[in-house]
């Protein structure tokens, strides 16, 4: 059945999903992020929170304040007015220790691609990524912009535990893991940065719409950054615009 986008669909009695597309596309995601920003700046009374994802914005609302039927036209108007790119996301350079215990798939992945590990790292660090969404777990960053040669299917059997800070590849997506947990993605390194630390004044390092580059680092710098993270520091600032 052909579907026309954008469309607003029901998610029960307290949420609507504004779907802009069913694919992964930077322009679509930019519109999602712009709409979320607009709703944060100019709140609608019934809207409790929003969840920007790749290609849709989940809007949670209180039906006792306003019904979906009354909310939809206003959300449609906001969507028409929201201008993507009005505020470019921040850009972070994320330090990465490639390979090692956490980046345990680096050599195998390089073999699969007919590359040396160094070449694979160079390809991974030459690209700029976009944070399409934060989801699944606190601070977990889903990145788009992975060079095509690095696209790799997920493992048939997920691993039981992958560490926080692991730098992953799953299909055409990339990730920076924020908390330890099971995963079927492939991992090529780790960052000492903590994307999520509830004890920090800013618990979350990245937001949807931010841009990310990776920079290889050695063991000495990793040790310094690990110490900074343990002390509750973010360890990195966004680049000046």
């Amino acid at each position: 059945m052909p579907v026309t986008y954008p469309r607003i669909v029901a998610c029960g009695d307290s949420a609507l999903s504004i779907e802009l597309s069913d694919g992964i596309d930077e322009d679509v995601n930019a519109r999602v992020v712009a709409l979320a920003a607009d709703l944060a700046e100019r709140p609608i009374d019934a809207v409790l929170e929003t969840v920007p994802t790749y290609r849709s914005l989940l809007v949670l609302y209180d039906p006792a304040v306003r019904r979906a039927q009354a909310l939809k036209p206003e959300l449609e108007a906001r969507l028409r007015a929201a201008t993507p790119g009005r505020r470019a996301g921040r850009r972070f350079v994320v330090p990465v220790v490639y390979g090692g215990e956490v980046g345990l798939d680096l050599d195998e992945l390089a073999d699969m691609k007919g590359l040396s590990a160094e070449e694979l790292v160079a390809i991974h660090t030459d690209a700029e990524y976009r944070v399409y969404m934060i989801g699944f777990a606190p601070g977990f960053a889903y990145l788009g912009g992975l060079p095509e040669i690095l696209h790799t299917p997920r493992l048939a059997t997920p691993r039981q535990r992958v560490e926080a800070g692991a730098i992953g590849i799953g299909g055409r997506q990339a990730s920076i893991n924020s908390v330890p947990g099971p995963s079927g993605w492939r991992y090529i390194g780790r960052t000492p940065l903590r994307l999520f630390d509830p004890s920090r004044s800013e618990p979350f390092l990245l937001h949807a719409g931010d841009r990310v580059c990776f920079r290889p680092i050695g063991p000495d710098e990793a040790a310094e950054l690990d110490a900074a993270s343990a002390a509750g520091l973010t360890g990195v600032e966004p680049e000046p615009a």
């Binding site: 029960g12 949420a15 999903s17 969840v51 994802t53 914005l57 989940l58 989801g135 699944f136």
Partner: peptide, 27 residues
């Protein structure tokens, strides 16, 4: 393409067994 979940979302993975997402669901 992953999107947001709410409490009560009935997701259906390839197994065909529905899973109702509850309080501690993934976002």
């Amino acid at each position: 393409v992953s999107d947001g979940t709410v409490a009560g979302s009935i997701q259906v993975p390839a197994s065909g067994r529905p899973i109702v997402l509850m309080a501690d669901r993934q976002t």
